[in-house]
Design a protein around this nucleic acid. Structure first.
Lengths: 151, 151
DNA sequence: TGTTAATAAGATTATATCATCCGATTAACA
DNA sequence: TGTTAATCGGATGATATAATCTTATTAACA
């Protein structure tokens, strides 16, 4: 079930996080990422293709090909991935779906939602993948272990 | 485009807010609500039917029938409507869609997202429709005026 | 008691999102 | 230079959500 971002966006974030903890410029196949994250291979591949258009990742065809980060991990933020896939409407539109919700004609929770949304935006826009690296490693290794235990 | 809740949930909230500023126990037809909120009549009616099951609103068939609040406005919170339609997963599940995101195996933003989510939950669960009444009136009248100006 | 105007409820259609499939292209390397 | 293994990109299928339609039921009231 969707929480805040679309499934595709979730997948994109996970896949890019996975790439961010690999050796620099190492090419990783969609197949590998799929196995490690336990997400459909084609969905991973489609989503990463989309992210190559916004220059966040790059890809290489052919044998030993795969995906890799197109910038330094310290130059990529989660908000860049979100902007590329879902867009930033979630940080702009009215939380109750009212049209024309702004300071002149605010919805009943406009004032209270504003700061929350701002804080969320900060969360995704201040930290870089480099900042998140340790936490990312811990989480991604736990997925792998979890899968092993289930077999 | 979806922001935080489903379209149906948005519609439910708007419709119940609309009912909350009517004279007590006055029955309002789905048709009227549809016109005032500028939303599809059938969608309004379907959604309110769903909310009758959770006893938030009540309805009366036949001539002069319609929908009305089943409780005092001071006893209904936005979270009650959200729980009835979308459920409360949005306040529980991992914002990045990681499975098993908890204190033991947290996702990279688990710690920072927690307080934001909590604040959002508070926003929807502490204020009642009665508390929001004035703001609701202002917003809903602005929709009507906006529509008139467009004609 | 018949007409009218409303919701109720089930069925259906439309749209967006999610997921998969397959042929074309590409590059490594034997 | 042929084989292999990867992405690319277009097409398609599946599912969930959104929106509509249709018929039944209900209640007011002339």
């Amino acid at each position: 079930m969707r929480v805040f971002f679309s499934k595709k966006c979730d997948i994109g974030i996970k896949a890019v996080l996975f790439l961010s903890i690999q050796e620099k410029n190492q090419k990783i196949s969609a197949d590998t990422i799929s196995n490690e994250l336990n997400e459909p291979r084609e969905f991973i591949s489609k989503t990463l293709q989309e992210l190559t258009k916004s220059k966040i990742v790059a890809s290489r065809k052919g044998k030993d090909g795969g995906f890799y980060l197109n910038k330094e991990a310290s130059e990529i933020r989660l908000i860049d991935i979100i902007a590329a896939i879902d867009g930033l409407d979630v940080f702009k539109e009215c939380v109750l779906g009212f049209s024309g919700c702004n300071i002149e004609t605010p919805c009943p929770v406009h004032d209270t939602w504003g700061p929350i949304r701002e804080r969320a935006y900060k969360l995704f826009s201040t930290q870089t993948l480099e900042d998140l690296k340790e936490k990312t490693e811990v989480k991604i290794y736990s997925i792998k272990n979890n899968l092993r235990n289930k077999k």
